[in-house]
Write a protein that binds this DNA or RNA. Sequence first.
DNA 1: GGTGGCCATTCGGTCTGACCTTTGGTAACT
DNA 2: AGTTACCAAAGGTCAGACCGAATGGCCACC
Lengths: 284, 284
Amino acid sequence: MTQPTRTAPVVRQAVVLSPMQVPKASDVLASELRERILRGEFPEGSALPPERELVTQTAMSRTTVREALRILEVQGLVRIKTGRAGGAFVTRPGQESVASSVNLLIRGGHLRMSALLETREGIEPVCARLAAVHRDDEDLERLEQANDAISVDTGSLADFLQANVDWHIAVAVASHNELLTGFMLALSRAIYAATDNQRFIDADVRRTAVKAHKTITQAIRDRDPEAAVRRMNRHVHGYAEAVKAVEDRVEIEVPDSPPAPRQARRRAPARSTAARTTRGSGGA
Amino acid sequence: MTQPTRTAPVVRQAVVLSPMQVPKASDVLASELRERILRGEFPEGSALPPERELVTQTAMSRTTVREALRILEVQGLVRIKTGRAGGAFVTRPGQESVASSVNLLIRGGHLRMSALLETREGIEPVCARLAAVHRDDEDLERLEQANDAISVDTGSLADFLQANVDWHIAVAVASHNELLTGFMLALSRAIYAATDNQRFIDADVRRTAVKAHKTITQAIRDRDPEAAVRRMNRHVHGYAEAVKAVEDRVEIEVPDSPPAPRQARRRAPARSTAARTTRGSGGA
DNA sequence: GGTGGCCATTCGGTCTGACCTTTGGTAACT
DNA sequence: AGTTACCAAAGGTCAGACCGAATGGCCACC
């Protein structure tokens, strides 16, 4: 029995309530639209109702509606065009959106270079295997074209690295697996960005890379998955080892400079991968 | 010489200008803030200036500022809290953001189940290898706990699948590689969601899975990468084969229905993974 | 001496209504 | 027939107001 005293200590029934969250209006609308889009209710390329129309339909303010559309845009579900006949056009989220989020994870997480390389060592052989299985003639052409570009001895370091990335991405594309492609896209770019100032890329390294690429391409052409895996494994592993060796040396040379200049240099090559993150059309 | 006729045809100097894009104000601000955050200018957990302050600093309208903050929120770079001491707090984009974008790619891209399985077949062995190398005692405990949960014969199908996913995710976590973990997170959930109504999961299948998990866990415990890879490979491959066999049968049973119901099946289980995509806290 | 109630303050969230810019179409003009 | 000018539709931006939620301080009441 509870104590029969006056002002009995209130026996609080432990009403277990989880924190509870009140979703924002724009989130609600965004979720609703997202579900409908994913459900295929709007065919790809079709336009959502104009903002002002959504306002009347949803009884929300234009601010809210716009915010919702903005969310969907960032998630890569719609592309917004201005002008007459503009509006929010449904679009399939592609590799780019995966790539950009992986990119954020890499850059924001302060991931060690070794983690990147380790991941690539794991994934790229898989890409090579699938490429050997699924490749078509177009893929082959891309591979050869990229490797031709690498072979040019006269190119600058940036050119070499770019062509190198292109080849690796071509392998991923040849796998005909969008998930892996998106992943490799971000990974390659990140490794590229982190490597561009390493001096260890000399003519010798280039030749080795070109040769490795050739044999891997050949395996892919021959539809020989096992060979592709094996060779890619060796190639990527060798690269990782080389980088690791240099990293150790560099770690000692460069004390610790303030972060700012490191960033400034990074956007040098061509398109800054970061600014274009929410917009469409990347580079593959 | 140009023709000296009256009303001489104006020789338009071909001023070659590339298309040029006018970025939106909010995008500019978002990019600026994003770069600063990624550069580590704001330590994690610290708060950005309040909206109204940003308004005065940037000479933009509050609408614009809010849109920019919203973009960063969707990208997982800040978390916005309401109330007095509220504001935009810097946060590291984690696996969740990768998982959610992969999730969108999967659901929006109408990926075939086979592509998912193929990807998993490729990646999960890699996770197993890394797990065998990097695991710590905590990881082991998670693995065993998850597999214990699976072993309970009395559990419902949903329970089994959930515990199954938990185990697989535990392997990814044990790899101590955030990239792979995020990737597998999305992948596992997607496969889970696509599998939940398959009838081929009987007691026999369960026992097989539990046994496989046990041997793999053992390899990880023993820090034996090769064994881990081999066993995981077999396990995942077997699973894929089983699913494929069932899929083929199902494919025949269900003639070819319009895309809508096929999607509807996918969202059956419990929490709709999509609605929670922008908010925090998933399920791992 | 806490406990609870009650502001005031400082945030983000939403709404309103206006105006600007871009873009496509179309009619007038040469 | 080709240009040009203009209009309409749609997104982009802005200013200002008000609402609601969290916090911190203060004070009365057990």
